[in-house]
Design a binder for these strands. Structure first.
Length: 432
RNA sequence: GGAGGGAUGGCCGAGCGGCCGAAGGCGACGGUCUUGAAAACCGUUGAGGCGUAACCCGUCUCCGUGGGUUCAAAUCCCACUCCCUCCGCCA
């Protein structure tokens, strides 16, 4: 949800934002009409209600007078009661009309995506702007061998088992076994060590959440088809810890002195991957369930941009520590998702695919989520919605893919990046 | 799953159907006093919509959520949610 004042004061900015996203521009005009409708209905109700309160206030004393035997008051009382009774019906009708108008407006508001940052490149998936290339891909030709893909390596190492996972859960599931499981635990510890060093509060959140949390973070719009819903209980499995972390402070007013508030969550993530049939069917690049370490920040909207840069830098620090070549991209407007105003992805080099693949993503959702979730800050006597930001620190399967493929040796063993060694307790993952 | 109790402002806590956005206390903030602080005393202290672009001011809404009764609901009725206690079951 965005600031309603924008709708009245600069609707053209909203239209431009919708246009850049490739979303419905007419929605802005529909909203404007509904907004006017709501205000007039609400004012009508307010006026009637004020009248009713005035009238009602006079009835009590009159009833007292009548009780004491003042028969002259009886006529006035009867008259007032008749008026009030009639007014009551009108108030109820006006209330219903105002309520209806408010509901219609609120519903339409939920359809409107966040206003894009005008610096974000315009376009779709192919229109990303590459901000930076870091590290350089290994030349396996020069080293004299052809790299194996992560699944082959994972199977050789006894680290990844998708065949058995298919028996148990179907396609796009996996077991991490042996060094695979240990690798995830080591990555978790490395990520948590970095995050806590940077002042993040570690959190293990619930992953089954109410519609409110899902709606508030913007995942029930276009993204809804990728969300698992537990029908019998009207709950959702989260696709990222961003959801429970954002919801943590819903309906709270946070003191400005306590901001920024930085959390790092570790959770399982569930994604239906609807519409991605045939994509990444081999291995663990695209799966229905995986674990992820996610950074989430509540901050003053004035600091959001700087915080976004910091989060990106922390993501890069992690990639640097793992010695994986990557590039940083500025995601185009058509690919932002409903809540982000701007998004930077880090894409890791995947040798066997000869391309860069997304491993982290950081979004500045400005006040969009905070407005929906009722998360505000107080500075002095001013109260306003906070800004929220999120960023991946370590999405397990994809990072494991990147490590295996980039650090493999001719025999299929894996050189463990220096930074990970203390957490893994070995320098090389040897074939069993 | 069964039985009972509860939900009021930052916190605690009172509240007869009308004078209740709500007593009282705590906390916080401002002031008096003090060399300074503490204590004491005085005062201020919720959020949102609309009238306004903003202030002042006015008005409406909000006492877990949603309905209902009534001229009038924090207060009465119904449903739901959450929390607590006890029993049962499970990890």
């Amino acid at each position: 949800m965005i600031d309603p004042r924008l709708l009245r004061e600069s609707p053209d900015d909203l239209r431009e934002s919708q246009r850049r996203r490739g979303e419905d521009v007419a929605l802005v005009d529909r909203l404007a009409a509904l907004d006017i409708e709501r205000r007039s209905k609400q004012t009508a109700y307010d006026d009637l209600r004020a009248e009713q309160k005035q009238l009602s206030k006079r009835i009590g004393p009159l009833q007292g007078a009548v009780k004491k035997g003042d028969s002259s008051a009886q006529a006035e009382l009867d008259d007032l009661m008749a008026q009030a009774s009639q007014l009551s019906d009108r108030v109820k009708a006006a209330d219903a009309a105002a309520g209806e108008a408010t509901r219609a407006l609120d519903e339409a508001w939920l359809e409107l995506s966040n206003v894009v940052d005008m610096r974000a490149p315009v376009g779709g998936e192919e229109d990303v702007a590459v901000l930076e290339m870091v590290g350089s891909p290994r030349d396996f030709g020069a080293e004299g061998f052809t790299p194996r893909d992560h699944l082959e390596l994972g199977e050789l190492l006894g680290a990844i088992d998708v065949e058995r996972a298919a028996k148990v859960s179907g396609s796009r599931f996996y077991y991490l076994t042996g060094v695979g499981a240990l690798l995830e635990i080591a990555l978790l510890n490395l990520a948590m060590a970095q995050a806590t060093r940077n002042g993040f509060i570690p959190v293990i959140p619930p992953v089954l959440v109410s519609p409110r949390a899902m709606e508030g973070t913007g995942f029930l719009g276009q993204a809804a088809e990728n969300v698992y819903r537990i029908e019998s209980d009207d709950m959702y499995l989260v696709g990222t810890a961003e959801v429970p972390l954002a919801g943590m402070h819903s309906d709270e007013i946070m003191p400005a002195s306590g901001l920024p508030k930085r959390y790092v969550g570790w959770s399982s993530c569930f994604r239906r991957e609807a519409g991605s049939y045939g994509k990444d069917t081999r291995g663990i690049i695209r799966v229905h369930q995986f674990d992820k370490v996610e950074m989430f920040v509540f901050c003053d909207p004035a600091d959001a941009e700087a915080e976004h840069e910091r989060i990106l830098q922390w993501e890069r620090d992690f990639m640097d520590a793992l010695e994986i070549p990557y590039r940083v991209i500025d995601v185009a407007t058509g690919d932002l998702g409903s809540s982000a105003a701007r998004k930077f992805d880090i894409e890791a080099w995947i040798p066997t695919q000869g391309t860069y693949r997304e491993v982290t993503s950081t979004s500045n959702t400005t006040q969009f989520q905070a407005r929906r979730l009722g998360i505000r800050m107080r500075s002095g006597d001013e109260v306003q919605p906070v800004a929220t930001l999120n960023g991946t620190l370590c999405a397990m399967p994809r990072i494991i893919v990147a490590i295996l493929e980039n650090h493999q040796q001719a025999d299929g063993s894996i050189v463990v990046p220096q930074a990970l060694r203390p957490y893994l307790g070995r320098d090389v993952l040897e074939l069993p």
